[in-house]
Design a protein around this nucleic acid. Structure first.
Lengths: 340, 340
DNA sequence: TTGTAAGCGTTATCAA
DNA sequence: TTGATAACGCTTACAA
């Protein structure tokens, strides 16, 4: 059996409560007693039991990370490691650890979130996605449980602390970039339509098209998963319409990469035949051939800031604002060319 | 205050212990009682408290992941997301969650591991690296705490369950591959010399060189961090010796990628001026220009199998073998050319 | 088949 | 400044 606070108390000739106070470095304990108790802890190799502590304390020093379903495929997209890097950096700065489960279905995810929350397993949650109609949000709000969202909540935006890019604007900028190069037949490749980020970017794209007097065509808009495969599927669809687009706004680098590869296989060239601008600016964007012009959304910062907000919530400090917008910027590389 | 087992007991008109048994689905409780209790749980929205449970139980249903120091930079290498993907898949299959802390220094890591272990925060540990002289291993062995290593332990190999590639052989294969292409001046770029994997691969490289009667030159061997930057540094050193190598065995794709880029900047071409074969076969290897010939080590499987072994340990099932070797294979792409 | 009661290892409250 | 003692919410002998 492990050594407990009682063993230490016995050895140090004090009460268990005193030991507890020494652990907490309470100012109401004499330096002398502290020394003695600490010596006893040292001698016995004492370490506080985490669960007993959390139970008495109602605090866990850990935050939960909720990923979109199928953690299995999610890690294939470099977005997630990078956002976790931001999260873990901030968490670590505050002595917090990270807990994550991966579920294959949304049902599994919901179940595991309920367990985390109701079971008191974590002090707060960061949601790495925002899906339209997600009932997790209602649940968390109802429970009054601290959480932040990376992305824009599909409702209750004033009530939910979230960190996001201005995706509408970013997509509009990206589209305008293509338009400025002289493109008129511009397509859009997004992720699932149930993701808020997809909607925002789609809207930004649409706005740019309309403002420039270009026609918005339904068959120029395709939705796929944020994976290389998704890109390949998307481009097949797009190239099969009459008068295929000459420019593409793609919501994810990995998808764009898939598109470039598929195009190359078809004997078409980027940017000579088709220009592509994508989102995220992960390493792949640099490595792609040609390197991709991509909208940098500062993924690390997204994660870091979300945790910052979460800590405020946990400490019940009212946040300055419920929404933090992380700036984006277009990184120009070689996947876009002017129309002749 | 949250709803507890007592509230449920009261509503269902049974003792708390009965409720507990229903949760555990004990066969010694009548179906009728189970129904009543479950209805009560439902009605009150009861969820068991995780910490109380773990405390009474001494089981946490979570496994800890230990990464090499500075989790901050570690996620930049795609090795880690991929290995975590394997880990999380297997963990999820068994209803386990993942806990991870990131430390900036080895001291911080050690401290947080001690806390996890002594504090009973996790049921077992997976170490994602193996460093020579790592005292974590002695600690864990001493505590008799379940853990597995991805890589080869630097000592006690018969006692520690670990999952590894045959890195000696893999490096020998890689070197032989270059030799078969006619290269004679072959360099080696590895990670930190304190990593066991580096040593194994270096030894394999050396063996191949000697067996083929080629000279092993100290100035052909360089060690750097497993990052793009590391690669750039390495190649600077290597190109400054007299008679620089014409072929390179590089222990990591990301490094190799850095090398290729640096070489390109110097006006040299891969594979025409220098052939490169690297390790890991992550996405970057495909994307690099030229695509890299790389030794696939099945990272996912490494993670998956390590957790499998860990569960055996936790359940005290003696494992078939303490060492599992995951097969490697060379994926040929376009970064190697024959010497003329 | 179910109830009683003693832990599990802390923290927090109230006295002293 | 310290000590008793009652929570915290659950599991598990031991009884019944």
């Amino acid at each position: 059996m492990a050594v407990t606070i009682k063993d230490v108390a016995k050895l140090a000739n004090v009460a268990p409560s005193t030991v507890s106070r020494v652990i907490a470095d309470s100012p109401r304990i004499s330096e002398r007693t502290k020394r003695i108790v600490r010596a006893a802890m040292e001698e016995l190799g004492y370490h506080p039991n985490y669960h007993a502590r959390s139970l008495a304390n109602r605090s866990t020093q850990t935050i939960g990370i909720i990923m979109p379903s199928s953690g299995n495929t999610v890690f294939q997209n470099p977005f997630f490691p990078e956002v976790i890097r931001g999260i873990s950096t901030k968490a670590h700065e505050n002595g917090y650890g990270l807990y994550m489960t991966t579920g294959t279905t949304q049902g599994e995810i919901n179940e595991s979130v309920r367990n985390m929350v109701k079971g008191g397993r974590v002090d707060g949650l960061v949601l790495l996605y925002s899906r339209i109609g997600d009932d997790l949000i209602d649940f968390l709000l109802e429970e009054d449980f601290p959480f932040t969202i990376i992305g824009k909540p599909y409702k209750y935006q004033e009530r939910i602390v979230h960190v996001d890019n201005d995706n509408f604007r970013a997509a509009k900028d990206a589209t305008d970039y293509l338009i400025a190069l002289g493109h008129e037949r511009i397509g859009f490749v997004g992720g699932g339509l149930d993701l808020v980020v997809t909607m925002d970017r789609l809207l930004g794209y649409e706005k740019a098209m309309r403002l420039s007097g270009l026609t918005y065509r339904n068959d120029y808009v395709v939705h796929q998963e944020f994976l290389e495969e998704g890109g390949k599927e998307a481009i097949k669809t797009l190239m099969s319409v009459d008068e295929p687009p000459t420019g593409l706004v793609v919501a994810d680098d990995l998808m764009a990469f898939g598109i470039v590869n598929a195009l190359t296989e078809m004997g078409l060239s980027v940017p000579n035949d088709i220009s592509i601008i994508s989102f995220n600016n992960v390493l792949i964007a640099q490595l792609s051939n040609p390197p991709l012009t991509s909208v940098d959304i500062d993924i690390f910062q997204l994660g870091y800031t979300a945790v910052d907000g979460l800590f405020r919530l946990i400490k019940k400090e009212p946040p300055a604002s419920n929404r933090v917008t992380v700036p984006h910027k277009i990184i120009e590389r070689q996947s876009c060319a002017p129309m002749l």
